[in-house]
Nucleic acid binder design. Structure first.
Lengths: 251, 251
DNA sequence: CGCGATTTGTGCACGGCTTCACAAGCGCCT
DNA sequence: AGGCGCTTGTGAAGCCGTGCACAAATCGCG
């Protein structure tokens, strides 16, 4: 903190945030937008933590990494904090996103309004299937994947979403990287190999369900047993699993 | 390990796995299925780790929690390991899943074939909109959400997916819990309050993009600077961010 | 102007996760 | 049968993240 290696620039850059903090900032941001809509002007760490489903100490420590953000005795200025978080996350302008694969899931993502409200703009749709190229979805026309390089360049796209079948994902990723994309959100159930400097995040619905299945399995196994430990244990274990696994639960 | 508090039962139950391990087991499972299809009979920890995108030491430690799984000098028996992981995850039978909210995203999820291949069966679709009730999707008919209790009971549903707008999600969650559901996968961008003993996992597409946005922001900020540190640092930091950030999805 | 109520920011300790490095074990070949 | 190479399983160390508990700071009020 207060390293200020970027002396001359006015807006402080924070290249070194704990990854766990970065993963929570978007949740805080969403909660803050809700609070702003409800007319709140300031909010305490306790209140914001409850709205975001985290511990208040954790929230304060997270925000402390952004510099002096709150005022003691009062709390945090909602709109100011929104601005600060958006600045840190690089959401000061709508980022253009490419979506590759307009199948079942891709169709839904293309029509999802949530992107527009949260800092992103779907700038282009791609598919390899000629039967789908030319289709209009939500005001955008589906283009063939061979056009990737030009469109990525024209629209200044640096983030892409892969919603193709698994067997096509690696090839698509290679093409995206070659076209200049440096961040990928992968919905295909497979591991992507990308060169150093490219970020990949993965969302796999089946994996999420399988993790839930494990906890289900454990619950039934435990309740089936005649309580080897003291009875109170079960509930505590479940709560712990909930916290660790679910993260988003308001405790 | 080898606590065996469940003396009489033959199949060993492992109620105490590190949460990080549980989150990775599904990825190993998917990689193993791929290897099995390719005809591999055994696989080394190095090979499986590469296929799952993790460190080999981590993989071995993860698998060691399941008991004696591999044979030294040889590796892991693919089909045996598949069986063991599926047993631990509670995937020995297809679990019935309810899907609530048949809008844009819900439609896509209902039609997603990936569930069936990975241990789950969408057993029922629900929506509150009477205009949608009665619609047929992928061989299932959309039912009104008031029918939740009966259907959950009939189909023995313990896992549900929420794909409603955010403002409806908490109410849906309450109804699901009241009907007996104990695990929820939430696609709505909001925090769910659930009683102790109910697991919630959250998937928020915008949050994933915002995390990527942060790294994008950081990349451009760093490359814009005239390299205060030695030049090699940049690449390493990015690779580190990739590992940490891409890792977990759920967590 | 000073004091108390309130809330932030943080030092500290603890636990979990990751990674290295190596001993233990297994199969194969001679 | 014995030794050699290969791979697993794990002890140990270090790092990151979490949460408690409290000092520092700010506002409002008398």
């Amino acid at each position: 903190m207060s390293q200020q290696r970027t002396g001359p620039t006015d807006g402080p850059e924070f290249p070194d945030l704990p990854e766990a903090t970065v993963a929570r900032l978007p949740e805080y941001l969403r909660a803050l937008h809700n609070l702003a809509e409800e007319g709140h002007d300031t909010v305490s760490s306790e209140g914001l933590a409850a709205a975001a489903g985290v511990n208040s100490a954790k929230l304060r420590k997270d925000l402390s990494h952004l510099g002096r953000t709150g005022t003691r005795g009062v709390g945090y200025d909602v709109t100011l904090l929104i601005d600060q978080i958006e600045q840190v996350l690089g959401l000061t302008h709508r980022r253009a996103v490419a979506l590759v694969g307009v199948g079942n899931l891709g169709h839904a993502l293309a029509g999802y309004a949530g992107f527009g409200n949260r800092g992103f703009r779907i700038a282009a749709l791609f598919d390899a299937d000629l039967g789908r190229v030319g289709e209009h979805i939500n005001g955008l026309v589906v283009r063939h994947i061979d056009e990737l390089p030009e469109v990525v360049d024209e629209e200044s796209i640096s983030i892409a979403v892969i919603a193709t079948p698994a067997h096509a994902a690696q090839n698509v990723a290679d093409r995206l990287v070659a076209a200049g994309v440096t961040s990928v959100l992968n919905f295909a159930p497979c591991v992507l190999n990308v060169p150093e400097g490219v970020d990949v995040r993965k969302v796999d619905l089946a994996i999420e369900l399988q993790i839930l299945s494990f906890h289900e399995h454990r619950k039934t196994a435990l309740t089936a047993l005649p309580a080897v430990q003291e009875p109170g244990r079960v509930g505590q274990d479940l709560q712990r699993a909930n916290r660790l696994g679910g993260e988003a639960v308001g405790s």
